[in-house]
Simulated assay, not measured.
Amino acid sequence: MNVTIDQNSGYCFGVEFAIQMAEDELEEVTELYCLGDIVHNSMEVQRLYNKGLRIIDRDQLKELRDCKVLIRAHGEPPETYQTALQNNLELIDASCPVVLKLQNRVKHAYDSNKAMNGQIVLYGQQGHAEVIGLAGQTGNEAIVITTEEDLDQLDYSRPITLFSQTTKSTKGFYHMKELIEQRVAAAQAAGVPVESLDANDSICRQVSNREPQLQKFAQLHDVVIFVSGKKSSNGKALYAVCQRVNPQSYFVENAQELDPDWFKNAASVGICGATSTPMWLMQQVKEAIQAQEPVAV
């Protein structure tokens, strides 16, 4: 049985940069705080915990004084930086440049739309770290949409500026855009004086480009094993891409979740993962498949 790891899978630049910053800092100190999971992968979070990285939430951040805190790639809202100033915290800012650029775009659109009574709409996952940071640029006035039902929150007589969480599916974004356009058209037909819709595809190209790459990869193999943390929004989206082209695609968080029955009569197995999946974890899964039994992680 031939087992191949997709070389296009694994960390995106932003995640790799954040983890490298954490590891560099941990060479100088024995303990470092990180606001939220540095990456949506429990295996990697545990590896870094063993090195001294301590995960905290926003309530715990307010209690810290005079220490260092890592800001992960997802970015943070303005309130986090205000807390850092008040509590004399040194921030090690590993925010992804793509996310920071989008935060600036959202802030500019929010400020520009105030005079027009416009709405900032974010296609993303409610409560996701990146979405919290983006919504923070609007004083948390942005409307977060995930499903078609969420579109009921919009006022179609007011201007709409639409952005996307950087790790969402391109297909999903354009589907949501089309649904909004349909509602705008229906409002116009009913005589509602519709203002405008400004849709911005703000999905990271390093993420969106993986979709066609994964489609080709999944088609090449009898069985596909997709390795990702269960919290990863990007992982869910990319796994769906694999499943669409290869029904014999399976989602695992680690090698212990492998089922030997998946590989019966399989001549070729492909291993791939999310932008939050470390290469060492995919390598462990490969070794477990080759040994025909899960390994301890």
Rank of each mutant, 00 (worst) to 15 (best):
I71N: 08
V99D: 00
V69K: 01
H175L: 11
V45A: 02
K264V: 14
E63D: 11
V29Q: 13
V192L: 10
S169K: 10
E31F: 06
L179R: 12
Q188E: 14
S249V: 00
T275Y: 08
V45F: 05
K177H: 09
T146M: 12
T277E: 03
S164M: 06
Y81N: 06
A186K: 13
F173Y: 11
S233P: 05
M43Q: 13
A189D: 10
A187E: 05
D66N: 14
L179K: 14
Q137S: 06
S249F: 04
I225A: 01
S112T: 15
L162D: 01
R210M: 11
Q7A: 12
Y33K: 13
Q182H: 12
Y250D: 07
Y33H: 14
Q103V: 03
P193H: 04
Q165K: 08
T167A: 08
E141M: 05
H40D: 07
E141S: 09
L220N: 14
E149D: 12
N265C: 02
H108G: 09
S164W: 08
Y250G: 03
N140K: 11
M282L: 04
Y81H: 13
G229I: 00
Y11T: 05
V106C: 04
Y11H: 07
M43G: 00
P212G: 08
S112G: 08
F163N: 05
M1V: 14
Q7S: 15
K236E: 14
P159G: 03
E130I: 09
G273H: 07
Y123V: 09
R58V: 15
S95I: 13
I55E: 14
L258R: 01
S233D: 13
V15Q: 01
L220Y: 13
K62R: 15
I203R: 06
V227R: 00
N2E: 15
Q103F: 01
L154M: 02
F263C: 11
C34S: 11
K68F: 08
I71W: 03
R72T: 04
N8F: 14
V194I: 12
L122F: 02
Q283V: 10
G136S: 00
M21N: 10
Y11A: 06
N140W: 11
M279R: 09
R244A: 15
Q86H: 14
E148Q: 11
C272T: 14
D37S: 04
Q243E: 11
L70I: 05
T80Q: 03
Q182F: 06
A218D: 04
D111F: 12
Q20R: 15
P212D: 01
V223I: 09
F226S: 06
T30G: 10
I56W: 09
K101E: 09
L70E: 03
V131R: 05
L134S: 01
E253N: 04
A73Y: 02
N50L: 12
G273R: 09
V194N: 07
A237R: 14
E76G: 10
F263E: 10
